[in-house]
């Protein structure tokens, strides 16, 4: 079977909020980490022209096809050079929240400014995800002391991470790992396995953050499970509580 991806580009012209330039200047934001979701990539050159007074830092982050493209799963290793703030071109909160989550292990969080293509800007604050980050830290601590770990593996080819998840056994020889297979994670099935103390998510990393509420026994992402001790002891926004 062949597959064709159609990007569904935004059909109107992207507008910048009339307040955006002043806001950036007033806050002395000169170096902007520029990102957009795929629907807006084809107009990014025109956007750059409108922002020519600023230094635009663009990068190609993991799993993407294009420089400046942002995926919702880009919550790790943004590796963006020093920026004063992030500027996201696109709609909704799902994608730009990745830019907030991607900074959880930094000491300070850079502001994430979203410019909706219709020309409305908003600042994404960490307030909305503070509770989930707090729970996430709690789950990291619980994982550390848990004996029985449920590792969730999706069969989606783009997400499946069975082999990398096996590294957990070497890292934590005193824990017992059980492997669970699913397509979309069946949250309502989790309680049927009461012997699991903490879950490790190997599917989309956003599940570990956005769906904390669905895991009564707590969930952490595979990447964080591998470096749990470091995450809990380093100076970071996550550890500021």
């Amino acid at each position: 079977m062949k597959t064709l991806f159609l990007e569904a580009p935004y059909e109107k012209k992207i507008k910048l909020d009339s307040k955006l330039i002043d806001y950036l200047k007033n806050n002395k934001f000169q170096r902007l980490g520029l990102f957009a979701s795929i629907q807006f990539m084809d107009q990014l050159e025109q956007v750059k022209e409108l922002l020519k007074d600023f230094t635009l830092i663009t990068t190609k982050v993991p799993r993407t096809m294009h420089e400046s493209q942002l995926l919702g799963c880009n919550t790790y290793a943004l590796n963006v050079e020093e920026v004063d703030c992030y500027l996201y071109i696109g709609d909704g909160n799902f994608h730009p929240l990745a830019l907030v989550l991607g900074q959880k292990d930094n000491k300070e969080l850079k502001e994430v400014i979203c410019n909706d293509p219709r020309g409305e800007m908003k600042i994404l604050t960490v307030a909305g995800i503070k509770t989930s980050l707090k729970k996430y830290r709690g789950s990291l601590m619980k994982f550390f002391t848990s004996k029985n770990i449920g590792v969730i593996i999706t069969i989606k080819p783009g997400q499946e991470q069975f082999r990398p998840s096996l590294a957990l056994e070497n890292k934590y020889p005193d824990k017992k790992f059980y492997y669970f297979i699913d397509n979309n994670i069946s949250f309502n099935q989790l309680e049927n396995f009461p012997f699991i103390d903490t879950w490790v998510n190997t599917a989309c990393p956003r599940i570990g953050f956005d769906d904390q509420e669905m895991f009564r026994r707590g969930v952490i992402n595979l990447t964080d499970a591998m470096i749990a001790e470091k995450l809990l002891t380093q100076e970071s926004y996550l550890n500021q509580g």
């Binding site: 079977m1 064709l4 569904a8 294009h66 595979l222």
Partner: peptide
């Protein structure tokens, strides 16, 4: 998954571009 069994010749997926999977994260 499983579209081959139904004889699907082509999947057209809107709203995304090819995904460059990496083993493990990030």
């Amino acid at each position: 998954l499983g579209l081959d069994r139904l004889g699907v010749d082509l999947l057209i997926s809107w709203g995304h571009v090819k995904f460059c999977k990496t083993e493990g994260w990030p």
